[in-house]
C-alpha cells in the first residue's frame, strides 16, 4: 500500500516537474516581486511587464508572496538572486525586505532595484516610481478640498499597518493638510488589513463616530470596496464622499453610484512596463536620461539622478465622467 502510495506520489511529482520544465532560453531575465499577489493592482503591473518583455526581447518573471509577509517576500527575492536573474525589482514591504540581500546581489553582479514602493538608503540601483509619494498624498487632499471645502472632517482607512509606502502617503496627506488647510480635520488613520469586510466595518464605525464626516480616503486598494460599501449601506451617498487609490475597474460601480467622488491612481500597467524597461537598461549597462522616451509608454519618463528615481508621471484622477475610458 505504502509502496503504491509512494509510486503514485513519485509519478505525480515527476509529471508535475516535467510539465513545468519551461523554456530554457538564453534571453536576459528581469523579475518583479510585488508586495503580494492576487490583487488587481499588481496583476496590471504584471500585464505591463509581460508587454514590455515581448517588446524588448527579455524574459519576465513575476513572483510574490500570498500574504504581506516580509520574510516570504525576502525568500522570493533571495531565490531570484540565486537563480541568477540579472535584474530583480521589488515593491518592498519595507526596507528590510531587501536589506539582507543587497550585498549578495552586488557580489553576483545582479541589479537589484525597487519599483512601486521604495527602500531609500538600501543601496538599490534605482527606484521606478509611479509618482512621488508626496504627489500622491497632496493630490488626494487637494482634490478632496475642492469637493468638500477647507474645513471638513476626513477619515482615513488603510490596509496593513505595516505597509511602508501606504504610511508614507498618509504622512504626506497629513503634511499637506497641516500646511495648506489648517482648518481641515484629518482623523487618525485606521487599519483594516486586507478584507472588504473589515474595511466596511471600520468605515461604518468612523461615520457613526463622526456624524460631521465629509469624506473617507481608502488608502490601500484592498480597502476601496469596503469603504464604498459602507457609504452606500449607511445611506450617506451625497453627504460623504469616498475616494482613494483605487483602480478604475474596482471603483467603477462606486463612482457611478456616487459613493465615490473620484479616485487617484496611475496606470499600473504602464508602471510594470517601465519597470521591465528599466531592468533591461540596467542589464545593458545604459544610464537613464533626464527624460526617457519609451516606445511602449504614453509619456516620457523623467529621471532624477540625485535621488535615483525614475518617474512615470503625475497620477491621474478618475471620475464618473472619464472612468469608462480606462480598463485596469
Amino acid at each position: 500500500m505504502l509502496s503504491q502510495l509512494r509510486k503514485v506520489l513519485a509519478a505525480s511529482a515527476l509529471s508535475f516537474v516535467v510539465a513545468t520544465a519551461a523554456h530554457a532560453a538564453d534571453k536576459h531575465k528581469v523579475a518583479f516581486v510585488p508586495q503580494l499577489i492576487g490583487i488587481p493592482y499588481f496583476n496590471a503591473m504584471e500585464a505591463g511587464g509581460n508587454r514590455a518583455a515581448k517588446d524588448l526581447g527579455v524574459d519576465f518573471v513575476y513572483s510574490g508572496p500570498v500574504d504581506t509577509n516580509p520574510v516570504d517576500q525576502l525568500q522570493i527575492v533571495q531565490n531570484l538572486i540565486d537563480q541568477g536573474v540579472e535584474a530583480v525589482s521589488v515593491s518592498v514591504l519595507d526596507a528590510s525586505s531587501i536589506a539582507p540581500v543587497v550585498e549578495s546581489a552586488k557580489a553576483k553582479g545582479i541589479k537589484l532595484f525597487t519599483s512601486d514602493s521604495d527602500a531609500p538608503d538600501s543601496g538599490r540601483a534605482v527606484y521606478v516610481a509611479q509618482a512621488t509619494d508626496e504627489g500622491l498624498g497632496t493630490t488626494i487632499i487637494d482634490e478632496l478640498v475642492k469637493r468638500v471645502g477647507e474645513d471638513a472632517t476626513i477619515g482615513i482607512v488603510s490596509g496593513e499597518a505595516t505597509a511602508s509606502n501606504l504610511n508614507a502617503w498618509i504622512g504626506f496627506m497629513q503634511k499637506e493638510a497641516a500646511a495648506k488647510y489648517p482648518k481641515l480635520k484629518l482623523l487618525a488613520p485606521q487599519f483594516a488589513g486586507g478584507t472588504a469586510e473589515r474595511a466596511a466595518q471600520i468605515s461604518g464605525d468612523l461615520m457613526a463616530a463622526n456624524p460631521d464626516i465629509k469624506a473617507i480616503i481608502a488608502v490601500a486598494s484592498s480597502t476601496c470596496p469596503g469603504v464604498a460599501q459602507a457609504i452606500e449601506t449607511a445611506g450617506k451617498i451625497g453627504s460623504v464622499i469616498g475616494t482613494g487609490y483605487c483602480s478604475p475597474n474596482t471603483a467603477r460601480s462606486y463612482l457611478k453610484s456616487g459613493a465615490f467622488g473620484f479616485t487617484v491612481l496611475w496606470d499600473p500597467e504602464q508602471l510594470g512596463y517601465l519597470t521591465v524597461w528599466a531592468g533591461k537598461q540596467l542589464i545593458d549597462g545604459k544610464s537613464f536620461e533626464a527624460e526617457n522616451k519609451i516606445a511602449g509608454l504614453d509619456k516620457p519618463a523623467t529621471y532624477d539622478a540625485a535621488k535615483g528615481i525614475l518617474l512615470l508621471g503625475p497620477p491621474a484622477v478618475f471620475t464618473k465622467d472619464n472612468v469608462d475610458k480606462f480598463n485596469f
Binding site: I39, G194, T195, A196, E197, A200, P225, Q229, T233, T250
Partner: peptide, 16 residues
C-alpha cells in the same frame, strides 16, 4: 450576505 453587501470578492476574503 457577504457578496450581496460588498459586491466584491477579494483574494484575502475570510482570512480572519
Amino acid at each position: 450576505f457577504y457578496v450581496a453587501t460588498y459586491r466584491n470578492v477579494e483574494t484575502s476574503i475570510g482570512s480572519t
